[in-house]
Design a protein around this nucleic acid. Structure first.
Length: 830
RNA sequence: GCGAGAGUGGCGGAAUUGGCAGACGCACCAGACUUAGGAUCUGGCACCGAAAGGUAUAGGAGUUCAAGUCUCCUCUCUCGCACCA
């Protein structure tokens, strides 16, 4: 080495250091793991990214947080599974293909290659041998098998339902793809179309999904609350209202059976299957016009709170089974077909929606609950009364409190055979059909003679054909590929058609964490033995935006796969961390705001360690992180100080032995105490609280101490050697490259990534003196130091004689002296 | 409207069990080294006050020897759900 190179080498050069160690980890396969039953397993997972092109700061933060935990747990002796992959199916690939006249597969795989390179530059401790992309046929083929097994069990089924439909693009749009009633792409007016769609019967698991929200203590409460709301369990009654002049009846669901005596009309969803039959000829024209109007309104608008309540009379009547009242049947735009039975008994006096509707259409009101000490008059009421009150006009139930009347009336309805107690869920089955190309084909064949025929096991996988043109018009590209669509029926051999729909991309992300346990398995989706070793995921980390959809679907799939016999765990994720957003200049980073920080530029300029350090130091993981370029400078500065301090002391520590504990001087003990207290704090902050910002702050404090410490004592070198070694070890999970390099330069032959986490010395952290504060009436007046273990009486007498304290107690009566040993004396005077 | 969370210096944030409010970092100020400084090092830095001291954790009440922390009320902000019968 020439002299010039030597001086360059003394300077912190992130690029050289990072390249060197990334290469080392890759070659040594440091992070590859297998099922080692001698060790305790730890499955750590961050939500896998969509390969959109390049990583953004949200990824940097998410994966930096995960990597601290992964590296820390490894150093603590756990067998850490830390995989990474790609959520690779989805619309952006198809849109890019349309725009660039390219192919979604090409676009996707190029993005993956680029982003993989970016992640590798961050030095993340992944077992890259387990990498998977959901658009690989080796992945999606097994999803098709699972689909067919679900189909066999009735968990996947087809039904007709209303969806947002763009007539120009000839495709289904998700709710979020409808903007102001128009198609987001071509602006055509979106309407409601009844389509045959595939569904997963998630509602079969509603009760279990809800129940387990009480058994996930490692999840943030707000996520659990969101899931409970989404599942939306409510208790009530189903009641039959007989039709007038007809033996049949209309069934309603209500949670307010206590108000049934006040039901004066009936409201049906416009999509209600009996709407047509109930419409009398003279009302037909008006009813049809109304139904048409509602169909044109998109769901989002229709369910907005301020949407005006409208309806139309069908001409038919039903009878209130308890009061025998004559109830006109209306169609109403606010009644939803997919909640309850799609029919509502309207009680205008005690439901605000019914109240507004009744006022608009001059329908009768009957008060059946009176607030205590007040009498409601239906004529002068300004709003519905929805609180608890006393029943009136309710036959034998008069005088009961409305809340207790619920049970009594429900029992009565059951006795009379006109109703029964039921539980209703808001959760609806999961519609997974997408009229898209870039997704997993649904493995189903339609035969004129045999009907719906599952693709036989030996014919799997149904591969996505590659020879497709992307024009952006005319619906699903798959439906137009004759070679794909036209097949022979596996049962009868006659010509048949393939299903052209693909599965929602949320299906792939519902089980990828299971496949990571055995990504190389060739003869099935999951290897039970391996999956059982690794599952559940001990720590899952990702954005709050997945609080409901992804996390609920993944929980559902885990239970389904359990019931199919693949796995034994009930829940996929033991602990969940939802990290905050990355903010700059008060707003989320976005191209339109022009406040995007590009990870590439950051890593080029400062290195991955600085990028990681800043995103961990600036805020605790679950809070939003305010990006600051100057803060990044600060993190870089810190790493330079660490680098310099170690190099300045290199000769000293390389010529020193290990500490001889029995021969430490007082100064050496003090220095050593700071080191071991820091180890204790950093360990606790990482392990118990994930408070990486305070852990890093503690190491910074230690650095400040070490920088100022220069002793002329015999064991100074030994103590400093231990101190710097510990400091480098403690920083390893945060900034793995620079610490590996320093560790090596300090003379270690085993890489830091193979070195256990330091333990603190329980004796070294014991203070030999304590700082005691003196308060007078709770206000700080003075301080003093005492040897550890000084008794209360001594502390009190020192405090009472303190010269700064005397003026505050002179001439006053000391009423009480509170003493907290080793901490505080509070003198109460009056 | 319902539900959840938050509110602390100029800024990001500390304060784990009720016991020194503001750790650590950024910015700023002064000094040192320097041809230079946007490098590095040293020191200062909540507010008012010359000082003694006083006042401060959104605002108000309360419990306590002692409250950022516990209780009640009010305000503001963020997120989620929202005609769910």
């Amino acid at each position: 080495m020439t002299r010039k190179e030597e001086t360059v080498d003394q300077k912190y050069n992130p690029r050289n250091v990072e390249d060197k160690w990334q290469q080392h980890w890759e070659e040594a396969k440091t992070f590859a793991v297998t099922e080692d039953r001698e060790k305790q397993k730890y499955y750590l997972l961050e939500m896998f990214p969509y390969p959109s092109g390049r990583i953004h700061m949200g990824h940097v933060r998410n994966y930096s947080i995960g990597d601290v935990i992964g590296r820390f747990k490894r150093m603590r002796g756990f067998n850490v599974l830390h995989p990474m992959g790609w959520d690779a199916f989805g619309m952006p690939a198809e849109n890019a293909a349309i725009q660039n006249k390219s192919h979604p597969a090409k676009w996707t795989y190029e993005n993956i290659a680029y982003m993989r390179g970016q992640l590798k530059k961050m030095g993340l401790s992944y077992d890259w041998g387990r990498e998977l992309a959901t658009c690989d046929v080796e992945y999606y083929r097994w999803e098709q098998k699972i689909f067919l097994q679900m189909y066999e069990k009735g968990l996947a089924y087809k039904k007709t339902s209303f969806v947002n439909w763009c007539p120009k693009c000839e495709t289904v749009l998700a709710n979020e793809q409808v903007e102001d009633g128009g198609c987001w792409r071509c602006d055509s007016e979106v309407n409601q179309k009844e389509l045959d769609q595939w569904f997963f019967r998630i509602t079969d698991y509603a009760e279990e999904l809800l129940e387990w929200t009480n058994r996930l203590p490692g999840w943030p409460e707000r996520v659990l609350v969101m899931q409970r709301n989404w599942i939306g369990k409510s208790f009530g009654c189903e009641i039959e209202f007989p039709l007038e002049g007809n033996a049949d009846a209309i069934k309603v669901f209500t949670t307010r059976q206590d108000t049934v005596y006040g039901a004066t009309f009936m409201s049906l969803a416009p999509e209600h299957p009996r709407a047509e039959e109930l419409t009398t000829p003279d009302r037909k024209e008006e009813v049809d016009a109304f139904i048409e109007k509602v169909k044109k309104t998109d769901r989002i608008k229709r369910t907005a709170e301020d949407f005006e309540k409208e309806g139309v009379f069908t001409g038919s009547y039903c009878i209130n089974p308890l009061t025998k009242a004559h109830m006109p049947i209306y169609l109403a735009n606010f009644v939803l077909m997919d909640y309850g039975t799609g029919a509502v008994m309207a009680v205008p006096t005690h439901d605000q929606r019914d109240f507004e509707f009744a006022r608009k259409y001059a329908l009768p009101l009957q008060v059946v609950i009176q607030p205590e000490g007040e009498t409601l008059d239906p004529l002068s009421m300004a709003a519905a009364f929805t609180e608890v009150g006393i029943l009136t006009n309710s036959s034998q139930f008069d005088g009961l409190r409305s809340d207790s009347a619920k049970e009594a009336i429900a029992d009565f309805l059951e006795q009379e055979g006109i109703g029964k107690k039921t539980v209703n869920f808001r959760l609806r089955d999961w519609g997974i059909s997408r009229q898209r190309y870039w997704g997993n084909p649904i493995p189903i064949i339609y035969c004129k003679a045999c009907g719906v025929v599952p693709v036989p096991d030996q014919d799997l996988p149904v591969r996505l054909p590659m020879d497709v043109e992307f024009t952006g018009e005319g619906g699903s590209p798959l439906a137009k590929i004759d070679s794909f669509i036209n097949v022979t029926c596996p049962l009868c051999g006659q010509p048949a058609r393939r299903e052209a729909d693909t599965m929602d991309t949320f299906v792939q992300s519902s089980w990828y964490f299971l496949r990571y346990c055995c990504p190389d398995l060739l003869d099935g989706p999951l290897d039970s033995e391996r999956v059982d070793y690794w599952m559940s995921v001990d720590q899952y980390i990702g954005g709050i935006e997945h609080a409901v959809m992804h996390l609920l679907y993944a929980r559902f799939f885990t239970k389904v796969l359990r019931d199919l016999g693949y796995i034994t765990c009930d829940e996929p994720f033991t602990k969940l961390l939802t990290q905050g957003m990355v903010i700059k200049d008060g707003a989320k980073m976005s191209k339109s705001k022009g406040n995007v920080v590009d990870p590439n530029g950051l890593i080029d300029r400062y290195g991955a360690d600085t990028a990681r350090l800043f995103s961990l130091f600036a805020a605790p993981p679950e809070k939003d992180l305010d990006w600051s370029d100057q803060g990044v400078d600060g993190s870089f500065r810190f790493l330079n100080r660490v680098w310099k301090l170690v190099h300045d002391r290199l000769d000293l520590i390389n010529n020193s032995k290990t500490v001889n504990l029995s021969a430490l001087t007082g100064e050496e003990r003090t220095l050593r105490r700071a080191v071991h207290k820091t180890i204790r704090k950093v360990t606790e902050d990482i392990e118990e609280r994930f408070h990486f910002n305070t852990a890093i702050a503690a190491v910074m404090e230690l650095l400040n101490v070490l920088q100022g410490a220069e002793l002329a004592t015999p064991q100074y070198g030994a103590v400093m050697k231990e101190a710097l070694g510990s400091l480098v070890q403690m920083l390893a999970p945060f900034v793995p490259h620079i610490t590996e390099e320093l560790w090596q330069r300090m003379g270690h032959h085993t890489p830091l990534s193979e070195t256990p986490w330091p333990d603190y010395d329980r004796e070294a952290v014991v203070d030999d003196e304590a700082l005691v504060v003196i308060q007078v009436n709770g206000k700080l007046r003075s301080k003093f130091t005492v040897p550890a273990g000084t008794d209360e009486e001594t502390m009190k007498s020192i405090a009472l004689a303190d010269e700064k304290v005397l003026p505050f107690i002179e001439g006053k009566q000391v009423r009480k002296v509170i003493c907290i040993p080793g901490k505080l004396v509070n003198i109460v005077v009056g």
